[in-house]
């Protein structure tokens, strides 16, 4: 079994040749992906290109069919037993995936818990913190996303942008080394996008390693170190945003960028 040393000393997330089918539809085909510490990678592409599925495979929320995903050098989702690959147990999956935090398009806050309780739940249940310690930690996280004064509010009385910031605080509380964002601003009213992107910019500035599936080209251009363009289940192009956005090589990326510009000029 490969170890962190033999694969890549610094890669936190590494995927080799992963593919995924939903029935007859191949949503990911033979994807390679590597994420180093403190890197911010944006994944862009038309809807249905497989970018969200890629992200979900990196978290094993969607089991990949072939290939391998390594988190910190450990195979995610499967165990090698006598040359055979078998699905790992839930505990093992949780263990390997522990350094990964995730933020969803639709927040997925628990509506019966206050903002603070959403953040402290895993601290108490998983990390075994006392109520007092968990609340102190939770308040610190809410402060970090600028929502300390909303701690006692239930999600239904928060705006979309606030909900997403609570969701970010909830993920941050578990001290992840990588944060995966699945279209974090796509469900928000346009005027609320900024507050969420600001929090993410701050995270990036603090050195958080991040993968962001997004339609926010401006954010991708300004904040990411690398942009990955996907189409039809494949990585078509990837590179620093300055090059990718200015000198797209593939016809598909050119077309994608043109469509985007046309839509955003009027």
């Amino acid at each position: 079994m490969p170890t962190a040393d033999t694969i890549a000393p610094r890669a936190i997330v590494e995927a080799h040749g992963i593919s995924k089918r939903f029935g007859d539809l191949e949503v990911l085909s033979d994807i390679d992906f590597r994420l180093d510490s403190s890197e911010v990678v944006c994944v862009i592409g038309p809807s249905g290109s497989g970018k969200s599925t890629l992200l979900r495979c990196l978290a094993f929320l969607e089991p990949y069919d072939n290939g391998s995903v390594y988190i910190d050098g450990q195979l995610l989702g499967y165990d090698q037993r006598g040359g055979m690959r078998v699905r790992a147990g839930e505990r093992r999956i949780d263990e390997v995936r522990a350094p990964v935090g995730m933020v969803f398009q639709h927040f997925h806050l628990w509506p019966h818990r206050t903002a603070l309780e959403n953040v402290t739940e895993a601290l108490r249940l998983v990390n075994g913190l006392s109520r007092r310690d968990a609340e102190a930690e939770g308040m610190a996280m809410l402060e970090r996303v600028g929502l300390a004064e909303r701690a006692g509010h239930f999600p239904e009385s928060l705006s979309g942008g606030q909900k997403q910031r609570v969701a970010i605080a909830r993920a941050l509380a578990m001290k992840p080394r990588v944060m995966l964002f699945d279209e974090p601003t796509s469900a928000l009213d346009p005027e609320l996008v900024g507050e969420v992107l600001d929090v993410m910019k701050q995270l990036a500035a603090d050195g958080m390693t991040m993968v962001i599936v997004t339609h926010e080209m401006g954010f991708a251009a300004n904040v990411s170190n690398r942009v990955v363009f996907m189409d039809q289940g494949q990585v078509v192009e990837s590179g620093p945003p300055s090059i990718l956005f200015r000198q797209p090589r593939s016809a598909r990326l050119k077309q994608f960028l043109n469509t985007w510009r046309e839509r955003h000029i009027d």
Binding site: W110, A122, L125
Partner: peptide, 23 residues
């Protein structure tokens, strides 16, 4: 109950039992 709430719990390492009883 939307499935995503459970995915969020799983990503935080919350066990199935706790997800059932607490969420």
């Amino acid at each position: 109950i939307p499935k995503g709430q459970l995915e969020a719990a799983r990503m935080l390492g919350i066990s199935r039992w706790h997800a059932l009883t607490r969420i």
